[in-house]
Design a protein around this nucleic acid. Structure first.
Length: 573
RNA sequence: CGGGAUGUAGCUCAGCCUGGUAGAGCACUACGUUCGGGACGUAGGAGUCGGAGGUUCAAAUCCUCUCAUCCCGACCA
């Protein structure tokens, strides 16, 4: 491509709407342009990278034996009513009516459509296993789209769905996809981790996320520093019970006045203790309309996913209203404690390991000090209720956990029979009996990968694309070509020769000053740069610079193409 | 949906408090000079001041409503 024929401008100033670096650079480099909140146009440069990402995905899916399809973006409501998600999905599902007032949705995902296809086409166990995938636009009406294409409302997703006669076959298909994902993200030059994950609203059993590690990531993940390779979404990582027994009770139970000290922090400062010595009591709504109490150590955070798995806790988890708290305890939040409590009580392992702890007295303006389980109140039901914190032992058995941020670029699920049962997708087995198929589902956020790659690969000057997903392999920068026919000629010759050799070449034939060209080349992040100048021609050498290098190399003119070819095949990033 | 903020030229923003008929830098056009790290000069084009209503002789500026965008939270693969 000739840059002079490319009408989309780079910009020096950072657009005020962009907060994270990938969004800023994508706008500055002219990869995307915003049309509405969470909705973007991909420009030719951006689209080149997007297509490279798609093609890597496509190649690995095909290699794994999956079959590409293309399903409709607009889907009839009947399918969603059949699966039950018409009611369950909520306002994130964009619904619309056609001219006949029939209900449709713009697909946020395609389980219903693919299951419908599968139940029509798959008749026999001999057709299984089967795996269909597509790379397609999705629309989810996110409450708060942000970070550019990282959390857009409209986005491109690769979604695959596999169908199996048995759980064993599903496990094999799942493992195959897991391997394919590792190959893809590795090929894209990303630093990532597969992590154990919650299945969320998609449902099903086993599930792993593929997280690109980046400080700007929206997800917290717990990663083991030991040899067990353990990694899990923070939502899911179990906090192991402490291995040491609870210390003996030394202090006696005493009620103290703590006026206007409601938070753990305020109480701890007031009583000159650490938050670890305090007990936090939270009331949440229960399944029968009442409340359930959850006790945590003062410095720990409630894990909503874990809490709402308790049988008595309403799903989704909701904190009890202030009125409900007063009704249940006779006291406002801030002074709640487990002693004398009438509602059901669950206590986190760490909270139960404490002796002589401090807790609310269920009386306005008062706390207890020197409280002890078993002595001052009955032993409650134990549960894992908290988020793990850095330093906790790894559930994998070797090492301790660190908390890192990640961008979720892929998610694989074993759905089991959730959709196939609801939609009666079955095949005949060897005995001629109908059996409901097992399903797996495997998603990748294609547009999000582009943003994630930039989060991991940039410097002060701009993007540093991993070579496999760069929009071009090489950028040619002729200097002062308008005045120097030799420079112009050589640039044109190289442009033609490199293209012939299969390079994707960007020729910066704009009549711009050198500084502008260098800055733009670095901003858009092309891996290899060749500078063509009178100075170089006289010396019989051209300047080569890799985007990740800080120094130029002088390459003899006659060797430029061969050296570039070598550089291209040598570096994956 | 709750809290906060912002909408003025394509972009980044000033002007608003204290009402008097719209500005800067970047970008763009033309010409000249310049030409190895985002040049300089001269001239120029470009804005329903987000929208509607109100107050006033007069509104970008004050008031009301509304729309949009961004941030925090809740929520969410």
């Amino acid at each position: 491509m000739r840059w002079s024929r490319y009408p989309i401008n780079t910009v020096k100033e950072t657009p005020s709407e962009a907060e994270v670096v990938s969004h800023q650079l994508m706008l500055r480099a002219g990869l995307i342009r915003r049309l509405a909140a969470g909705i973007y146009t991909w420009t030719p440069f951006g689209l080149r990278t997007l297509r490279k990402v798609e093609n890597i995905i496509r190649e690995e899916m095909d290699r794994a034996g999956a079959l590409e399809v293309l399903m409709p973006a607009v889907q009839p409501a009947e399918l969603w009513q059949e699966s039950g998600r018409w009611e369950l999905y909520g306002p994130e599902l964009l619904r619309l009516k056609d001219r006949h007032q029939r209900d449709f949705v713009i697909g946020p995902t395609h389980e219903e459509v693919i299951t419908d296809l599968a139940r029509r086409e798959l008749k026999s166990y001999r057709q299984l296993p089967a795996n269909f995938y597509q790379i397609q636009l999705k629309f989810r009406d996110e409450i708060r789209p942000r970070f550019g294409v990282m959390r857009g409302r409209e986005f491109i997703m690769k979604d695959a769905y596999s169908f199996h006669a048995t759980q064993e076959s599903l496990q094999e298909g799942y493992d195959l996809m897991r391997d394919a994902y590792i190959r893809m993200f590795t090929r894209m030059g990303l630093e990532f981790r597969p992590v154990k994950a919650d299945t969320g609203s998609i449902g099903g059993t086993a599930s792993e996320e593929f997280q690109v590690l980046a400080d700007s990531g929206e997800d917290a993940i717990a990663v083991s520093d030991g040899t067990d390779n353990y990694a899990a979404n923070l939502e899911l990582a179990p906090a192991l019970p402490p291995s040491t027994p609870r210390p003996a009770a030394l202090a006696s139970l005493t009620k103290v006045a703590t006026p206007h000290k409601r938070t753990i922090e305020e109480v701890a400062i007031f009583l000159k203790v650490t938050p670890q010595q305090c007990l936090k009591l939270l009331l949440v709504e229960s399944t029968d309309g009442g409340v359930v109490a959850l006790a945590l150590r003062g410095d720990h955070e409630l894990n909503a996913i874990k809490a709402q798995k308790l049988p008595q806790v309403a799903q989704p988890l909701r904190m009890a209203s202030p009125e409900a708290v007063v009704a249940a305890t006779g006291c406002e939040p801030g002074y709640l404690g487990p002693i004398g409590l009438k509602c059901p009580l669950y206590a986190d392992h760490a909270a139960l390991a404490a002796a002589d702890f401090i807790c609310g007295a269920n009386e306005m303006g008062h706390h207890y000090i020197g409280a002890n389980w078993g002595r001052d109140l009955p032993e409650p039901t134990r549960a894992d209720l908290r988020n793990v914190v850095a330093g906790d032992p790894s559930p994998g058995g070797n090492g301790s956990l660190r908390i890192r941020r990640g961008i979720e670029v892929g998610h694989i699920f074993q759905l089991g029979k959730k959709y196939s049962e609801a939609m009666q997708a079955s095949v005949l087995d060897e005995a001629g009996k109908p059996v409901v198929m097992f399903m797996g589902c495997y998603g990748i956020g294609v547009t999000r990968i582009v943003a994630a790659a930039i989060e991991q690969n940039h410097d002060a000057a701009g993007i540093r694309w991993p070579a496999p997903i760069a929009p071009f392999d090489v950028v040619l920068v002729p200097l002062n070509a308008a005045k120097s026919p030799k420079v112009a000629e050589l640039a044109e010759a190289l442009y033609a020769q490199l293209q012939q050799r299969g390079f994707e070449v960007l020729l910066d034939d704009r009549d711009a000053r050198p500084g502008v060209k260098f800055a733009d080349a670095e901003l858009i992040g092309i891996p290899h740069r060749i500078v063509i100048s009178d100075r170089g021609i006289e010396a019989g050498a051209l300047e080569y610079r890799h985007r990740r290098a800080s120094e130029n190399e002088a390459w003899p003119l006659s060797e430029v193409i061969e050296r570039l070819a070598a550089a291209r095949s040598a570096t994956s990033t």
